[in-house]
Design a protein around this nucleic acid. Structure first.
Lengths: 146, 146
DNA sequence: CGCAATCCCTACCTAAACGGTATGGTATGC
DNA sequence: GCATACCATACCGTTTAGGTAGGGATTGCG
């Protein structure tokens, strides 16, 4: 599995939405500026996130995006898989692509790796991260190097 | 972090070497045939594995490769990092590349993911996998679908 | 000695992907 | 009705993946 800029940007954007939860729709442009994400690139990411059912879009003036569920009900796993596709570390994940398939001891390592990654992502929610970010920001006001 | 064919092939090759541990040098060509790996590509992988200190090369006729240490002393992590470089899931891993660096809650998820992956790879050795493969092969002789 | 086998090194290549940018269309609040 | 948003599609330059090609250096063996 490869984690690309899509996941990084997409997660930052959704943490931002979580932080502004309940304040009505937030525009992609606003998030792009706040998080230093290329605006048109972020628009594309939101298309994937909307199709995955993670955000709702409001079109027109004063439009923007809102989380489809509460921040504590959206996991990082959902975000990552919405943007990168199904989580799997290699081509040889036990599927039919690899000729060695079931008879391959190496596959067990890759599968355990996928499971470990999936567990981390599945047990972390946007609420967790938005909360952590709020703490960081509060600390950072007067002590940016502590 | 991206796991590519290098890791897949490289791990298969070293499991093969582990399975033939103690029988003298095994040629890259022999492993390539046995594991269905493109021969010239495997040669390149062995260069990296040798430079990482995982295998010793014997040149000339009857040459080949031998594991530098016993199979139980070589972890999958070493193999993966020798072939793919340092294990990190994204560009934003807390280094100086990401402008958000220390002040970014998202980075904590990526770091935890890296740690989880590293743990799986670090706690699995070539001896484990060679043993597992031997079991599979023994079972597979008479019951390939069980 | 010669020669075949083997590792070593560099260069090259094609296809795909990444990380965007550009352009226009469509809906909507004010 | 118009600025502000999202929506859709196409394009594009660079890097990487996944090899291939060709030769050079070393060594066991007959």
């Amino acid at each position: 599995m490869r984690l690309t800029a899509k996941s990084e940007y997409g997660l930052l954007a959704l943490i931002d939405l979580a932080a502004h939860w309940g304040l009505g729709p937030i525009s992609a442009r606003e998030i792009a500026e706040r998080q230093s994400i290329p605006p048109k690139f972020l628009e594309q990411l939101f298309v994937s996130l909307r199709k995955a059912g993670l955000v709702t879009a409001m079109r027109g003036a004063r439009g923007g995006f809102v989380l489809e569920r509460t921040p504590s009900e959206i996991s990082v796993l959902e975000v990552v898989e919405a943007l990168e596709g199904p989580l799997k570390p290699t081509a040889c994940d036990g599927g039919s692509l690899c000729a060695r398939s079931q008879m391959c001891a190496a596959a067990t390592v890759w599968n355990r790796a996928t499971a470990a990654l999936r567990d981390v992502f599945d047990t972390t929610t946007l609420a967790d991260l938005a909360g952590a970010q709020a703490s960081i920001d509060a600390q950072g006001v007067d002590a940016s190097q502590a």
